[in-house]
Every structure is written in C-alpha cells, then in structure tokens.
C-alpha cells in the first residue's frame, strides 16, 4: 500500500476527481479572491468551514493528509496573527490593550485583524488542497489547453518542468553532501549563506538547463510543434462541472448573503485595516 500525500492523492477517486480541472481551478481562485475582500471573522470562518466540508466530503481527502498539507498555511497564518496582535497600528487613541507581556503589548484591534488574516491563510490552504488533491496533472494541462486556450507549447513545458521537480530535491541533497566532503563548512552569517546559495545554485542551474535542453530536443524529435495536432484525450465541460461550480460558489454566496443580513459582513473599504 503506497501512502499518498496531497500531491499523489490525484491517483485516488472521489466525486471531485471527475470535475474539469479548469473549472475547479477557477472556482478555487474565485473563492480566494472573494476571501481577500472580506474582513470579518464570522464570514471568513464560515467560508473556510465550507471549504473544509468540500475537502473532506466531496474530495474525500483523508484528515491526516489534509493536516499535513495545511501545515505551511497554518504557520503562515500564525505568523500573521502574532505580527498583527503586537503591532499598535490601529486608529490613534482608540487602541485597546488586551494584555501586556513585558515589553510586548497585545492590542485588541490588532488581534482581531490577526485572526482574520490567519483564517484567510487557512482558507487559501483549504481551497488549494481542494484543487491539488483531486487533479491529475495531465488532465489539468489538457484542460488548460482545451478550456482556457493556453498555447500547447507553454502547457507542455509546464508539464515537463513538473516532472523534474522531485529530482531537484535529491540533486540538492547530493550537492550538499559533495560540498561537505570537500570540506566546505556550512557557514553561518548572511555572507556565508549567500556564498553557499551561490555555490549550490550553479550546479543545480547547469543541470536543469541541460536537462531542459535535452527534453526540448526529445520533444522536437517527436515532431512536437504545438500546432496542428490531434488529441488522444480531450477534456470537455459537462454538467458535473456546472454542478460543482454552482455548489462551491453558491455556498460561498449564500454565506455572504446570510452574513450581510445578520449584519456581521465587513467588506474591503479601501484600507487593509478595519
């Protein structure tokens, strides 16, 4: 039994695996755009919760896989929370101190802002997982070409680059080991770090460029031009895609309407701060 992380979950099956990738991508992007314009905690939480429901229910992502995938977003969100909570940038005179920890003061407005930023980061995570965990990269590339009219040359290059990603990590590990054996210490300090990054980058770049050249040659040697070609598989728009768009976006719209009625909704007013 192969344990599949979020990037391999596309090999499993769920109702969401059947939805056209372009539609899924646009839906997730639309929700993320929307989330960026909403500032109040209840509405944001509800939208994040709706995403969570879709991920666990429709996309059937296992909670452990989801948790691991959400980790970077959670760290990012916590960072935002902390930064905002201790920065007294609220309207002058009205800032209300909640808690004092030595030289640090936690401000009420800052904290609320921080929480809303954190939830936003988490919603970005959830709606990204919704797309990534249910989308076969090949089908995605096909739908980019067929539905979103991305030029095949560009889309196929992206696919080739995607295939190269896993080896990049292994290659970096080898370079580090090789340098250690030559007696290059992993030096601290900004200067040392920059020098190290430079030393690692050159061989990585050299290898990547050579490989890109070889792949491009191999594609050309198989008559690839990106023009006048037929398709073994085509992706189409079907009712299930409309259904998903309606469900995902409809849910978010319903939350916003309900929140507006209840008077909790706060939209972007031209400032980053409430």
């Amino acid at each position: 039994m192969i344990r599949r992380g979020v990037f391999e979950s596309y090999e499993l099956a769920s109702p969401l695996h059947l939805v056209n990738p372009a539609v899924k991508l646009l839906c997730s992007l639309a929700v993320m755009l929307f989330v960026s314009l909403i500032f109040d905690i209840p509405t944001l939480s509800a939208i994040a919760g709706w995403g969570l429901l879709l991920v666990l229910g429709l996309a059937r992502v296992r909670p452990t896989v989801l948790a691991r995938a959400m980790l970077p977003f959670a760290i990012f969100g916590l960072g935002f929370l902390w930064m905002n909570a201790i920065l007294p940038r609220a309207a002058e005179g009205q800032a209300e101190a909640l808690l004092r920890l030595g030289p640090l003061t936690v401000w009420r407005e800052g904290l609320l802002n921080g929480i809303s930023f954190a939830i936003r980061a988490l919603s970005f995570g959830v709606y990204s997982v919704l797309f990534v965990a249910t989308t076969d990269p090949t089908t995605f590339v096909l739908s980019l070409i067929h539905q979103l009219r991305v030029p095949p040359r560009l889309a196929y290059s992206a696919l080739a680059a995607y295939r190269y990603l896993p080896t990049l990590h292994a290659e970096l590990a080898q370079i580090r080991a090789a340098h250690r054996l030559r007696g290059v210490g992993e030096t601290g300090g900004l200067r040392g770090k920059l020098q190290q990054a430079y030393r690692y980058t050159i061989p990585l770049l050299a290898a990547a460029l050579r490989r890109a050249g070889r792949t491009a040659n191999a594609m050309e040697a198989r008559a690839f031009t990106g023009r006048q070609r037929t398709w073994y598989r085509t992706t189409r728009l079907r009712t299930v895609d409309a259904g998903y768009a309606l469900l995902a976006l409809g849910g978010v719209a319903a939350i916003v309407v309900l929140s507006a009625r209840a008077g909790t909704l706060m939209l972007w007013s031209g400032r980053l701060w409430v």
């Binding site: 990269p137 090949t138 196929y156 295939r163 080896t167 490989r211 070889r214 792949t215 191999a218 594609m219």
Partner: peptide, 8 residues
C-alpha cells in the same frame, strides 16, 4: 528520463 514528456 529527459526524453519522456508525459506522466503515464
């Protein structure tokens, strides 16, 4: 490896 362009 560098001649293969697709995933399956």
């Amino acid at each position: 490896d560098s001649q293969l362009t697709m995933l399956t």
